[in-house]
Amino acid sequence: METLIENNEKTKFCKHCGSKIASDAVICINCGRQVEEIKSNQPNIVINNENTNNSVNTATATVNSNIGMMGNTKNKTTAIILCLLGLIGFAGFHKFYEGKILMGIIYFLTCGFFLIGTIVDLICLLGKPKQYYV
């Protein structure tokens, strides 16, 4: 059963939801169900979702490996000694050593966030490798 609408387009009704669809439609745009059999003159649509592209993974690994090398090399032992000086009153020197000037000033003015920040930084420094990048 086909009808005409205002722009002279032929339409039909979906046999599942009853909404108006184009007369040559195979799938209803409202309910998504198939309303007609696929005719032989229509091209077959093949969906292949396999990704065999390995260059994306290689490029990502290369970028990630270079990110760590972009910073300045710092010595773990020096940073720990400067952080320990913060525990006895000279807070913030390890932040200045790492090049974090604003954090160094904040640590200096607040005595290392009242020693809590200095203790947390000391624990973090203990877990870093001997030469680390900032």
Score class of each variant (00 low, 15 high):
Cys31Phe: 06
Ala91Phe: 01
Lys15Ile: 14
Ser23Pro: 01
Leu109Val: 15
Gly32Glu: 07
Tyr133Glu: 07
Ala59Asn: 11
Cys28Leu: 07
Gln131Gly: 02
Ile47Trp: 05
Val63Tyr: 08
Leu102Val: 15
Phe96Lys: 05
Asn41Gly: 05
Gly104Phe: 05
Ile80Ser: 01
Asn51Phe: 08
Lys128Asp: 03
Phe114Asn: 06
Val46Gln: 09
Asn49Trp: 02
Phe93Asn: 01
Val134Ile: 05
Ile116Gly: 04
Pro129Ile: 01
Lys10Phe: 12
Thr62Leu: 12
Glu2Leu: 11
Cys111Leu: 15
Val35His: 03
Ala22Lys: 11
Asn72Lys: 15
Leu109Phe: 09
Lys74Met: 08
Tyr132Cys: 06
Thr52Glu: 07
Glu9Ala: 12
Ser65Leu: 04
Val63Lys: 05
Lys12Cys: 09
Thr52Met: 05
Gly89Glu: 07
Leu87Trp: 09
Thr118Lys: 01
Val35Ile: 14
Thr78Ala: 14
Ile47Gly: 00
Phe113Val: 07
Asn41Thr: 13
Ala59Pro: 00
Glu50Arg: 13
Leu85Val: 04
Thr78Ser: 10
Lys10His: 12
Asn57Ser: 11
Met69Gln: 13
Asn72Pro: 01
Ile101Glu: 00
Gly112Lys: 04
Leu109Cys: 14
Asn44His: 11
Arg33Tyr: 09
Met1Leu: 09
Asn51Thr: 09
Tyr133Ser: 14
Ala61Pro: 00
Cys111Ile: 12
